[in-house]
Every structure is written in C-alpha cells, then in structure tokens.
C-alpha cells in the first residue's frame, strides 16, 4: 500500500505530465491555505474501484477552464469557449490525470477499474465521500495566473 506522501508525489507527477504535455501550462504547488477558487467553477470527477476505491476531482474557475479548453484545442483563449467544450475538457483532464496516476501507482494500489468522467459546475464545489476515506488535496498554481484544486479520495476495500 502506498503511503500518503508517495500518493501525493505520484499525483503531482501525473498532474504535471498532463498539464505540460496536453495543456501546455506549467504548474507549481501553491502554498495558499485559504479557499482559492472564487466564483463559478467546473469540477471534473472520475471514480475508480478495485482493491482501492475512490474518486479524483479536478476543480478550477470558469476562466481557468476556458483557458485549459482553448490550450487543449489549440484555439485562442477567450471568454467565449462553449460550456460543453469546457465540460468536455475538464472531464478529459480528470481522466488523463487518473490514468497517469494509475500507471504510476498500480503496482502498490493493485488493480483498479476507472469510470467514465463526469463534470459538474457551480460555486464552492467540494469533492467528498462517505466516512473512512483518506483525502489528498493538491492546490496548484497554473502559469502564475490561475489556481486549481485536485482532491483524491480513496479507501481500501479488502477485495
């Protein structure tokens, strides 16, 4: 079983890989302690099950989601990116981050199956589950311009 520190490192490496390869944005861990996402936001969510089960959420504000979507598609960032495009992009980000994390950590986590991603939008979004789950939270700074939060909830199932 992975330690929480090792899970954090694997998750951060996965996020860096996805953002640098597919979204062309440099990321850094943020040392902000306060809630960093103000206003309407998108959250890409993807669940997994197996020896370990849980959920990964990737959350950022609408302008950040518009930039992510534009960078992925190679279009000019502006405020007119369609909501469906932003939802699609955030779902794919969650999907790719979890896929990359799974490849890094499967040796220790055992076999896990991944769901199809879903995306929600709203204010003050929070990724939480029932009790007895471990939670890893990464607050990241994107290009010094935006913030995003990644939450990984997981627990062993004993399967």
């Amino acid at each position: 079983m992975l330690s929480k520190t090792s899970i954090e490192e694997s998750l951060l490496d996965s996020v860096k890989e996805v953002f640098e390869t597919m979204i062309f944005m440099d990321i850094e861990l943020s040392d902000e302690n306060e809630h960093i996402l103000e206003g309407p936001s998108f959250m890409g969510l993807i669940t997994f099950s197996g020896d370990v089960e849980g959920c990964l959420g990737v959350c950022c504000t609408n302008p950040c989601a518009a930039t992510i979507s534009a960078n992925m598609l190679g279009s000019e960032p502006d405020n007119h990116a369609g909501e469906q495009e932003m939802k699609d992009a955030m779902g794919e980000v969650a999907n790719m981050v979890l896929g990359s994390f799974k490849a890094r950590a499967e040796g220790e986590l055992g076999k896990i199956q991944v769901s199809i991603p879903t995306v929600v939008c709203g204010r003050e979004l929070n990724n939480d589950m029932v009790a007895r789950t471990e939670k890893v939270l990464l607050k990241i700074n994107l290009q010094g311009e935006y913030f995003a939060e990644l939450t990984l909830l997981y627990r062993q199932t004993g399967k």
């Binding site: 979507s69 992925m72 598609l73 190679g74 469906q84 495009e85 699609d88 779902g91 794919e92 199809i116």
Partner: peptide, 11 residues
C-alpha cells in the same frame, strides 16, 4: 466519447 478529445487527436 469526448468531442474535445476527438479534436485534440485530430490536431
């Protein structure tokens, strides 16, 4: 199933 991903693959 993601139209965004289809566009990204094409690009």
């Amino acid at each position: 199933d993601s139209s965004t991903m289809r566009k990204i693959i094409m690009r």
